[in-house]
Nucleic acid binder design. Structure first.
Lengths: 208, 208
DNA sequence: GCACCAATGTTAATAAATTAACACCAGATA
DNA sequence: TATCTGGTGTTAATTTATTAACATTGGTGC
């Protein structure tokens, strides 16, 4: 399978979660336009994405929810599970840790890192917190592949660079500092302030 | 000024913050390629965005940092400041509240809402927390325009609908529940789980 | 002064993402 | 059975976003 566009991958993740909700509601089949409506996109978009992953339903009575969940998993999940660490376990870090709790998923949160003596060596939000000095050792010992970066901006660049040196293959950067990573490492950045300012801009413009 | 593309607005927000850093470093002028490099985009992108907002520097010695900060403010900020509330003041809510602290900005965080008795009527992360029952009253009393939604998924839809009914003009939705808003209300959604799964996907693909 | 350089603003080209159009088919209906 | 309906998969068209190309211009060094 050739690499999918990022946007499609994002939507696949959303499809899957919507489909899981369907299962909860005992819906076993769903039409493309239903799925689309729940996510506020178009049915064509859904069908096109499914085309890209080579899925097609045999029936004309909508997609088999269970089957589709399975297929999406085969596409976006890795074979064996992948280990994740949260670096900087402040409010944002804990919020993110919460998302992992009780999720049967191919993504395991296996460690957090922080230098706050209140936190070090304690279990926080279900995961043990190590000091930064242990980053190298723990990345290797626990085979951590993905780092979620929620440290204060002052350390962001330095720590990101370290994690990469010690073998991290993907970074999800929530700090306000744009990072630089070597090729072979995947970087995704999200900046909350930008989102807020964007909302403010469009609110202003709508009003005018 | 005709409405700018969302992507450009996002970048303008990032430009401004980068420029503010420049001021800290006592840099008073900056070339398009320097600004671009800091954000890991191309110089053309920067120049094109500035073209869209109708800015052009007189000098050939880079942009005047202060002036550009000003211009961007004129474009993306509203004339008078705009009031914001955080709905659901858990870990994520508190993280977001932190971003407002000590920021001189046209965006004022003026309230938070939550039903947890531990939180109600207390000041949390610098802002007073009201119970959900007060949403209507406080939106009107404090002229709140933007809601940042960080409640548990179970209430998301219901509360969002309420805020809109009571006059909110923009929602930044961090819950996993996709929302529906009437036209005239601007909605921006961000889903952290999707981001994590996206990173995992590309890490997996890079390895293969 | 003038040839050159480096950076800009803008138009044109390319690439990416979304949407429209449509042929096809299983099942329902008469 | 023949016809219609509603949903699908796919190609083509459109829109949006990014990148390339280039003419222009203030400053610099001779």
């Amino acid at each position: 399978m050739t690499k999918l566009p990022g946007k499609t991958v994002e939507r696949l993740s959303e499809y899957r979660r919507t489909l899981l909700e369907c299962l909860n509601e005992k819906r076993n089949f769903i039409f493309s336009h239903d799925l689309a409506a729940r996510l506020h996109i178009t049915a064509v978009q859904v069908r096109r994405d499914l085309m890209l992953i080579g899925y097609s339903s045999v029936l004309r009575k909508g997609y088999d929810v269970r089957e589709l969940i399975d297929i999406i998993g085969k596409i976006i999940d890795s074979e064996e599970s992948m280990n994740v660490a949260i670096i900087g376990i402040g409010n944002l870090g804990r919020a993110l840790a919460g998302y992992f709790k009780g999720k049967r998923s191919k993504l395991n949160l296996v460690a957090s890192f922080d230098n706050d003596p209140q936190k070090v060596n304690k279990v926080i939000s279900g995961v043990k917190c190590y000091p930064y000095i242990d980053i190298e050792r723990m990345i290797k010992e626990l085979d951590i592949r993905i780092a979620i970066l929620t440290v204060s901006p002052d350390f962001a660049r330095e720590i990101a660079e370290e994690t990469v040196r010690f073998g991290i293959k993907g970074i999800l950067n929530f700090t306000t500092i744009p990072l630089n990573v070597p090729s072979g490492v995947y970087l995704e950045e999200y900046d909350m302030i930008t989102s807020i300012e964007k909302v403010a801009y469009f609110v202003k413009e709508n009003k005018i």
